[in-house]
Design a protein around this nucleic acid. Structure first.
Lengths: 187, 187
DNA sequence: AGATCCGGCTAATGCCATTAGCTTTTGGGC
DNA sequence: GCCCAAAAGCTAATGGCATTAGCCGGATCT
């Protein structure tokens, strides 16, 4: 062992704080190193390269999101759980738009675990609707699409009209909860 | 005037083809210039900088998407129109995942027009449901969130399970069309 | 024909990621 | 208490990229 000043986790911490405060475009190894009080190349002792740092950051963001929605569904079921889950999802995005905006969806092992947890929480919440196996997968995809789509658009300031976003989201939540009662096939 | 070899539009064309073929990460002025058969700095005669090129590209992508969904809703109404619109949206994404992935949502004048057209088409399609004014805005946001969310996740290969994506999307379309009959407020 | 302007070019700057290779610190075994 | 191996830091160097400055040639208009 040696000086334990820095670590991969610590680098990710610093990077996340940087993105949170200055936006995704501010993420450079130089900026992270400066914040960590270290020369740029030193970061390579903890992280393979910028791409890996991004991936680790995404994993952490997915974990945080998973924590939030996991808490939200505790002790709730059916519409109540889905509403809480979606509300928690959006609350996370509103609190951390820059972080959410730098979440990337690319499939890599690191992220797989965190993403899987989010999916598992959703799938579990869908059991109250009688959705299992393939049906639960299809329904989960719809829920993710709705929540993520709204999140991305809101984080990117893609909704320009003056109407209250809370009301829009409330409608979306009701669309989803009602939609989970539809037959997964046919109609 | 002088040699009309290149133009802002032509540069955008080249850039879009580049992104389409090699992915969003391949977008550099150097690469665009190489494809255009020109030295890198020459591009600055047509485009202010990389950020503006990105913006122009986004505008074009939004236009293309607008064309597609505009065509799709022609001669249809209500569920039929919404289904056609959402199907056209996804078809565009599946055909052009890289282009769609480089669509950015940031609000700037160039993009405003193209984005507005997409929104207008949706709003118009919602009239069949009796949705007007604020209600139409809220409903439009939900539809955009659903379609865009699915599109982003699919383009980024965010859906890992083996289940057929067509079936998932069909469920999403039915969720939306059914959801458009919900009261916009309350429930 | 000549002035003008547009659109191209080369050269130069500065930031960034990444690599190589050296130095320092630290903790464990003697 | 001392030595050594490895971890973690550093400086220097490389190469790609965006961007700016300033020059040049040809097309257009008068």
């Amino acid at each position: 062992m040696a000086r334990a000043a820095l670590s991969a986790d610590a680098v990710v911490d610093v990077a996340l704080r940087l993105v949170d405060e200055e936006g995704p475009a501010a993420l450079t190894l130089a900026a992270v190193a400066a914040r960590a009080g270290v020369a740029t190349p030193s970061l390579y002792k903890h992280v393979r390269n910028l791409a890996e740092l991004r991936s680790l950051m995404s994993a952490r963001i997915a974990e945080e999101l998973g924590d939030r929605i996991g808490e939200a569904v505790l002790g709730r079921s059916a519409d109540d759980a889905i509403r809480a889950l979606m509300m928690a999802w959006r609350a996370y995005v509103v609190e951390n738009p820059n972080k959410y905006g730098s979440l990337d969806q690319s499939p890599d092992p690191q992220r797989a675990e965190a993403a899987k947890r989010v999916v598992d929480i959703i799938v579990a919440s869908l059991r109250a609707y009688g959705l299992e196996d393939s049906d639960a997968i299809h329904a989960t995809r719809c829920l993710r699409a709705a929540a993520h789509g709204f999140a991305v658009l809101e984080a990117a300031k893609g909704f320009q009209m003056a109407e209250d976003l809370d009301e829009s989201y409330d409608l979306l939540v009701r669309m989803v909860t009602a939609g989970l009662r539809l037959p997964v096939h046919g109609g």
